[in-house]
């Protein structure tokens, strides 16, 4: 019997250890984020944890910063425009890739998905190089939109393509056979069936565009800059708690997108 008791002890020890390691893993994953949120409500003029007293001081400070209001608006506008254009481009090409068996399919697929293969820093520096050669590097806003479209299109293509590939082609044939035009069929049959893929692709594209640094850092300039790039610059030359307050604001925005995601298409799209 003693061996089974030893085994039981081992089992309990193993269970305790695995729970402890799991807690440690989640602390590692979420601890720094939680600490930033708590630190942002400090009354001190430098970062301390725990804060000596709680105050909203740094939030007032953040909303009075002109670069913050400017760059958060720019980030939203760029993310919305880039997502919308990426969605249209992505849906069209996904349609061709999902249903078509044309000779150039492999080339189209390769080109459209290239941004997934290359490091984003390389794409950013490459685009920056070309823009300098063409003397177009000053048009920060347009360049950022173009760049963001380029890195987000593959995400839309992948999720819309897989959604379209899973749909029943006979429904389209039925629609055409019953006298609907190809355009009506596309609008009323094909698009609704691909809806989950379109929503997932759109959410991924928006998140990616809103958070991007690796590409945007090469394209921002005096005319337009995004929030993550501006925040990064601020972190590098100043030690006050404003980035903590900005981080908390960005976390709140992320939480909203996150809630929308889990209500609509589910969290599996990130897995």
């Amino acid at each position: 019997m003693s061996s089974s008791r030893a085994e039981n002890a081992l089992l309990v020890a193993g269970k305790t250890l695995s729970v402890a390691m799991m807690v440690a893993g989640f602390l590692f994953l979420l601890g720094p984020i939680v600490i930033v949120v708590i630190s942002s409500f400090t009354s001190a003029s430098y970062l301390t944890f725990p804060p000596p007293e709680f105050s909203l001081r740094w939030y007032y400070e953040v909303f009075s910063l002109s670069w913050f209001s400017r760059s958060i608006v720019t980030s939203f506008v760029i993310a919305i425009i880039a997502t919308a254009i990426s969605a249209v481009l992505g849906i069209l090409v996904a349609r061709a890739l999902a249903r078509g068996t044309f000779r150039a399919k492999a080339i189209v697929e390769f080109v459209v998905l290239t941004p997934l293969l290359l490091p984003i820093v390389v794409l950013g520096f490459g685009l920056f190089n070309l823009l300098v050669t063409l003397a177009l590097e000053g048009h920060n806003f347009v360049n950022l939109i173009g760049g963001h479209i380029m890195i987000t299109v593959p995400f839309v293509v992948r999720s819309v393509w897989s959604a379209m590939a899973g749909t029943d082609i006979t429904l389209e044939e039925a629609s055409l056979g019953l006298g609907a035009t190809p355009f009506e069929t596309f609008r009323n049959v094909v698009l609704p069936m691909a809806r989950p893929g379109i929503i997932s692709g759109g959410i991924l594209a928006f998140t990616m565009s809103f958070n991007d640094v690796s590409l945007s850092i090469f394209l921002t300039g005096p005319r337009a800059s995004t929030l993550p790039v501006e925040m990064m610059a601020h972190i590098e030359y100043s030690a006050d708690p404003t980035p903590a307050a900005i981080s908390t604001i960005m976390l709140a925005i992320t939480l909203i997108i996150f809630a929308v995601t889990s209500r609509t298409v589910g969290l599996k799209i990130f897995a």
Binding site: L251, F258, T261
Partner: peptide, 11 residues
């Protein structure tokens, strides 16, 4: 995974 890389590094 959805949180900005800058925010996570700042943590």
């Amino acid at each position: 995974l959805m949180v900005s890389v800058v925010v996570r590094a700042y943590g």
